[in-house]
Simulated scan of single mutants.
Amino acid sequence: MDGSPTYREDELDAEVALALLEWQLEMGVDVPVLDAPLDRFELPARLDPPAPAAAPAPMAAPVAAAAAMPAAADDLSARIAEAEALAAAAGSLEALAAAQEAFDGIELKKGARRFCCADGRPGARVLILGDAPGDDEDSQGRPFVGRAGQMLDKMFAAIGLARDSVDAERALYITNTLCWRPPGNRDPSADEIAVSLPFLRRQIELAGPDLIVLMGNAACQAGIGQQGIMRLRGQWVQAFGRPALPMMPPSYLLANPPAKREAWGDLLSLAERLEALSV
């Protein structure tokens, strides 16, 4: 048994079919392989004997691999350079978001539903930097929504901060390291972070926060070049030229409630830092 639910054909009403689709999404099946079904058990009418394989030259594979590596590196460098040029030319957050959404140098764009850039108030003293959109964020085009977003809002409301506050002193500006959802909610790759980084640096520059919360491993990788949120959390660092506090993301706290105690300590540390800056 592979753990998947089984049903007779006469049991597959609309409710059961929807439950099966939801189960597939939970297992990470969110992209169809083909547009039409294919019976892989149906043999062709005639099987031709395989042609004898020619013996490869001893150095063919290593040479081909070596030739491909510089080409891939050059392509990544070109995409990063294009992202840097587009980001530098943006004079406002609105222009930057438009340039980033139109940018085709990141493959994630092809599989995502919505561009998920930012939420909250530009000019807020605190900027929250998350990792990448999940399914809820991909559906709504806003960072930190769904259960994780509700948890985040409750966390920061406890120290008097909110994404919908009109007061910059009490507001939050929220964004993601990547603005396109990775398939199956996998972790962003190093190349994907590198291509997104020029837009992120410019976004932080234009938003102008006093403090940054690095909420997750991808955020820490982008901000300080390190991962290991369990080890880094609670320690003030410098990221993007500003004081930054790594924190565990709300999705982790939902799955591990005892960790909320440490998260509360981090929130108090953030509140103290804000109070010191106000003096």
Results as ranks from 00 to 15, higher is better:
residue 22 E to W: 06
residue 71 A to F: 06
residue 8 R to G: 11
residue 8 R to D: 10
residue 240 F to H: 12
residue 148 A to W: 04
residue 235 Q to T: 13
residue 210 D to S: 14
residue 135 D to N: 11
residue 98 A to L: 11
residue 237 V to F: 08
residue 274 L to P: 05
residue 117 C to N: 09
residue 201 R to S: 11
residue 121 R to Q: 12
residue 161 L to V: 05
residue 168 A to M: 10
residue 21 L to D: 10
residue 9 E to C: 12
residue 128 I to G: 04
residue 147 R to T: 08
residue 60 A to N: 07
residue 54 A to L: 13
residue 104 D to W: 09
residue 119 D to G: 12
residue 258 P to C: 09
residue 148 A to N: 09
residue 41 F to Q: 14
residue 135 D to Q: 12
residue 7 Y to I: 08
residue 275 E to I: 11
residue 168 A to Q: 10
residue 257 P to T: 02
residue 180 W to Y: 13
residue 124 A to P: 09
residue 8 R to A: 13
residue 160 G to I: 07
residue 216 G to D: 00
residue 190 A to C: 01
residue 86 L to T: 05
residue 121 R to Y: 01
residue 68 A to Q: 10
residue 39 D to G: 05
residue 253 L to G: 05
residue 35 D to G: 15
residue 85 A to C: 04
residue 118 A to H: 11
residue 35 D to K: 15
residue 69 M to W: 09
residue 60 A to H: 04
residue 169 E to P: 04
residue 121 R to D: 04
residue 211 L to E: 09
residue 2 D to T: 12
residue 132 A to N: 02
residue 72 A to K: 10
residue 58 P to Q: 04
residue 248 M to H: 02
residue 222 A to W: 04
residue 158 A to P: 01
residue 15 E to Q: 11
residue 97 A to H: 01
residue 78 A to C: 02
residue 115 F to N: 00
residue 45 A to L: 15
residue 253 L to M: 07
residue 57 A to L: 11
residue 243 P to R: 06
residue 271 A to N: 11
residue 13 D to C: 03
residue 203 Q to W: 09
residue 251 S to T: 09
residue 114 R to P: 01
residue 41 F to C: 14
residue 253 L to E: 05
residue 224 I to R: 07
residue 75 D to L: 14
residue 185 N to C: 10
residue 191 D to E: 15
residue 6 T to F: 13
residue 18 L to P: 05
residue 149 G to H: 04
residue 234 G to F: 06
residue 219 A to D: 01
residue 64 A to Y: 05
residue 242 R to P: 06
residue 28 G to K: 08
residue 272 E to Q: 14
residue 16 V to S: 01
residue 164 D to L: 08
residue 174 I to F: 06
residue 231 R to W: 10
residue 154 K to N: 12
residue 277 L to T: 07
residue 175 T to H: 03
residue 243 P to Y: 07
residue 222 A to H: 08
residue 31 V to H: 13
residue 132 A to E: 00
residue 51 A to V: 11
residue 50 P to S: 09
residue 137 E to S: 04
residue 144 F to I: 02
residue 127 L to G: 01
residue 270 L to P: 09
